[in-house]
Simulated scan of single mutants.
Amino acid sequence: MSGRTVRLRSTDADATVHARHGLGPHPRTLEVAGLGLEQACMTITAEMAEPTC
Rank of each mutant, 00 (worst) to 15 (best):
R4C: 06
G34K: 01
A49D: 15
S10N: 09
G24A: 12
C41D: 09
V32Y: 02
M42E: 13
A13V: 09
A40G: 08
P27D: 09
A33Q: 10
G3K: 06
M1H: 05
T29P: 08
R28V: 11
G36V: 02
A15M: 04
L23Q: 07
T5S: 13
A19K: 06
G34F: 02
A19E: 05
T5M: 10
D14G: 06
L23D: 04
A15Y: 01
L8F: 03
D12I: 06
M48C: 13
L8T: 06
G22V: 02
L37I: 07
A33W: 04
E38W: 05
T5K: 15
T5L: 10
C41E: 09
G22E: 01
R4N: 04
P25G: 13
R9C: 03
M42T: 10
V6C: 11
S2N: 10
E38D: 10
P27E: 10
A19W: 04
T5C: 09
S10D: 05
R28L: 13
L35C: 10
T52Y: 11
T43E: 09
P51S: 10
R7V: 01
L8P: 01
S2Y: 06
V17L: 06
M1G: 00
C41P: 04
R9F: 07
E38S: 05
G24R: 14
A49W: 10
E47Q: 14
A15H: 02
T29D: 15
E38Y: 05
R20N: 04
S2C: 01
L35G: 07
H21Q: 12
G24M: 12
G36N: 12
V6E: 13
H21F: 09
G3D: 01
T43Y: 01
M1E: 00
L23M: 10
A40I: 02
T11C: 08
R7L: 05
T16M: 06
E31H: 14
C41A: 07
L30E: 15
P27G: 03
H18N: 11
M1P: 01
A33C: 07
E31R: 14
E38V: 02
G36F: 05
I44A: 07
R4M: 00
Q39Y: 00
A15T: 08
S2W: 04
M48S: 12
L8G: 03
C41K: 00
G22C: 07
T5V: 09
A19P: 05
H26S: 14
L8H: 02
T29G: 12
T52D: 14
G34H: 04
V17P: 03
G24K: 13
G34E: 03
L35F: 07
E50C: 13
A49L: 14
L35Q: 12
M48Y: 09
R9E: 00
G34C: 01
P51C: 11
T45L: 08
G3M: 04
T16A: 00
A13T: 10
C53T: 12
T11Q: 14
H21G: 08
A15D: 06
D14S: 09
